[in-house]
Measured scan of single mutants.
Amino acid sequence: MAAAAAAGAGPEMVRGQVFDVGPRYTNLSYIGEGAYGMVCSAYDNVNKVRVAIKKISPFEHQTYCQRTLREIKILLRFRHENIIGINDIIRAPTIEQMKDVYIVQDLMETDLYKLLKTQHLSNDHICYFLYQILRGLKYIHSANVLHRDLKPSNLLLNTTCDLKICDFGLARVADPDHDHTGFLTEYVATRWYRAPEIMLNSKGYTKSIDIWSVGCILAEMLSNRPIFPGKHYLDQLNHILGILGSPSQEDLNCIINLKARNYLLSLPHKNKVPWNRLFPNADSKALDLLDKMLTFNPHKRIEVEQALAHPYLEQYYDPSDEPIAEAPFKFDMELDDLPKEKLKELIFEETARFQPGYRS
């Protein structure tokens, strides 16, 4: 834990890192770190609560700039109880001085990944967590956004079992017609939660990839272990087919990539493993919904509104309290091709509203 900075004593240090967030945020305490930044909790002297502050230093890398800009653009436009918001952003007053960006968010005690390492969940908890994931996802999908990296560590939890989806750095506007060349190379989302079509096709992607990830998360809540822990690309596919069985001819016809289709045709026939054999203690309604989410063919996979209306979630289902976005989200430009200098300018502009004396 960093010592509390005395008023006016300059930035606090946390594990050798400068955290320049005073005077409003003090009493910093280390939480963890990701690929390009550290997260601390801090005391907000204005709202009198502890908050989470993520320090991001992305400006050396085009990919990190892209992810940072995506996350900020999306989260500043989203407003939903099951999606983490941005409360404040701290950065230098000029673009030349801006080396880091500090993002202030609600402090959540833990995440689903940490929880599943230590606790076996009751059916009631599984049901409530799944409902909140789908409630947040309904809003995301209504904005025409794909999260693309749903996994237990991106689901934040607090002691009252509130759940918030975080990390929109890989999110995209849904565009089933656009052929994202190089899709697989830039697709760094965790393999275990990846839909089979991501490994088999490169053309376009749809909201059904997020539903697949939610199915993987439900299976993990039922058993405290990942359902498809593939060691590499082909191993991942083999794990999936080992449980779902061989795809039907109709399902194979959806695979545009001939090499991928021929690979699947070359494999020995596998039978589907019954879900109640894998999860003998699970609620039968939970397994019915799991089956509809972990469907090989993305066109037959359940959609988020149908999933919310499934009998497993009937005690929570309330369409009048499951809000959607006001308007579909649009990125003005494809960020993939922009140089990091341009992305830095866009991050600077996007964060201006939090600067003292800002006038829109």
Rank of each mutant, 00 (worst) to 15 (best):
K330Q: 06
H125W: 05
D291V: 14
A7G: 10
E12L: 14
A3D: 12
S29G: 03
R261G: 09
A286F: 01
L289S: 09
A307D: 11
V51I: 11
R359G: 15
G169Q: 07
K203Q: 13
L137H: 12
N154L: 12
G136Y: 01
F183G: 10
C216D: 05
C254R: 09
S202C: 14
P152S: 12
S223Q: 14
R91H: 12
Y113C: 10
H178W: 10
M199K: 15
V18I: 13
L290G: 09
E350K: 14
L287R: 04
L121R: 03
W212E: 14
F183M: 12
V14M: 11
R67C: 03
N276M: 01
R91V: 07
N144Y: 15
I83T: 00
D167M: 01
M199Q: 00
F59K: 06
E197P: 08
A2M: 13
D318I: 04
S142L: 11
I140S: 11
H239S: 10
L287F: 06
E303W: 04
E12H: 10
I31N: 14
T181V: 08
E186N: 02
I165C: 05
D100S: 01
H178R: 13
F59R: 09
N87P: 03
N47V: 11
S223Y: 15
L137P: 12
R70W: 03
G10R: 14
S142Y: 02
I133A: 02
V188C: 07
T94D: 04
A3S: 14
F78K: 10
I243G: 03
P196V: 12
Q306V: 03
R353L: 12
L338G: 02
M199I: 15
Q66K: 15
L308A: 01
A174R: 09
V304P: 06
G245D: 11
K117F: 10
A92M: 00
E305Q: 05
T94G: 08
R67W: 12
H147Q: 15
E186L: 09
L241R: 01
L130A: 12
D149S: 00
S320T: 13
K138A: 09
M221N: 01
I103K: 07
T159Q: 14
V104M: 08
V145L: 13
L156G: 12
D251F: 01
Y205R: 12
T118Q: 07
A7Y: 06
L155K: 01
L264M: 15
Y43D: 05
Q66G: 05
A195I: 02
T181N: 10
W212R: 15
G16Y: 09
Y113P: 09
H120P: 09
L244H: 03
F331A: 00
E350I: 00
Q249I: 05
L343W: 02
L313D: 05
H232R: 06
Y128M: 11
G32M: 03
Q105K: 15
K285C: 10
L157I: 11
L308N: 02
A309G: 06
H299F: 07
S266C: 15
N271C: 11
I83A: 00
G136S: 04
E341G: 11
D167K: 01
P11L: 14
R194T: 09
Y263C: 11
V49Y: 07
L267Y: 04
L313F: 08
K207T: 13
S266M: 04
K272E: 09
S213L: 05
K55W: 12
E326R: 08
K138D: 09
G136I: 01
D88T: 04
N276F: 05
F78C: 10
G37S: 13
T185F: 07
Q132T: 07
D210A: 12
C127V: 11
T181Y: 09
R79E: 07
H80V: 03
K270Y: 03
V49P: 06
P229H: 15
F19N: 13
H232T: 01
Y139C: 13
G10K: 12
N144G: 05
P11K: 14
S266P: 00
R135Y: 01
N82F: 00
I74C: 09
M13V: 12
L252S: 05
K99Y: 04
K164V: 11
E186C: 05
K330R: 10
R135N: 00
L234F: 12
V104D: 13
S57G: 07
D332M: 10
I347V: 07
Y316L: 09
P247I: 00
Q315Y: 07
K340M: 15
A282S: 14
C254I: 10
A352W: 05
K330W: 00
Q119P: 06
S29W: 04
D167L: 00
R277D: 12
E96T: 01
T160N: 07
L156N: 05
C65P: 05
L294I: 07
K55D: 08
D88P: 08
P11V: 13
Q17Y: 08
S246H: 00
Y312P: 04
I89S: 02
N253I: 15
L287W: 06
L112Y: 06
E314L: 01
K340P: 07
V188I: 14
N87K: 15
N276L: 09
Y193N: 15
V49N: 05
A6R: 13
N262D: 07
V188H: 05
I240C: 06
R194A: 09
Q66T: 03
Y102K: 07
D111W: 01
E220V: 13
I133K: 02
S284W: 08
R277K: 14
P274W: 06
P280N: 08
D321Y: 15
N154A: 06
R15P: 12
F129I: 15
I133G: 03
G8Y: 11
Y43A: 04
P176L: 12
L343N: 10
V104E: 08
I140C: 12
S153F: 04
N238C: 11
G8S: 11
L346W: 02
I217Y: 06
S248P: 09
S29D: 02
L155C: 02
F78V: 13
D210S: 06
H141Q: 11
E12A: 11
P23A: 03
L137K: 03
K342I: 15
V46W: 12
E314N: 00
P323I: 00
L278M: 12
D251G: 09
T94C: 11
I256G: 06
L241S: 13
K54V: 13
E220C: 08
A9C: 00
I227K: 02
E220T: 07
F228L: 15
V188K: 08
K292H: 06
I198L: 11
P356Q: 05
V46S: 03
T26I: 15
E334K: 14
I95C: 04
G215S: 08
E350F: 00
P196M: 13
Y187W: 05
S223R: 14
E334H: 00
Q315L: 14
K73F: 13
P152R: 09
N276E: 10
L252V: 01
E96P: 03
S284R: 07
S284I: 04
L170H: 09
S57I: 03
R191T: 08
V173A: 12
D20A: 11
V304K: 06
W192H: 12
G136V: 14
K285E: 13
A174V: 14
H180F: 12
K207R: 13
W192C: 14
Y316F: 15
A171V: 07
G37P: 08
G8F: 08
Y64Q: 06
K342L: 02
S153Y: 09
R15V: 09
K340L: 07
F331G: 03
T295S: 15
P226A: 07
A92E: 00
R172I: 08
E60N: 01
K292S: 08
R301Y: 07
D124L: 06
K138R: 14
P11R: 14
I240K: 05
G182Q: 10
L222F: 10
G215C: 07
Q17K: 12
K292I: 07
R50F: 05
A2S: 12
D106T: 02
L163H: 05
L115Y: 02
S360P: 14
K344Y: 08
F296T: 05
A2C: 00
E71K: 08
P58D: 01
M38S: 11
Y25G: 06
A92S: 14
K203R: 14
I31T: 00
I209Q: 13
Q62K: 15
V18W: 04
C254G: 05
I89T: 03
H120K: 11
I324V: 05
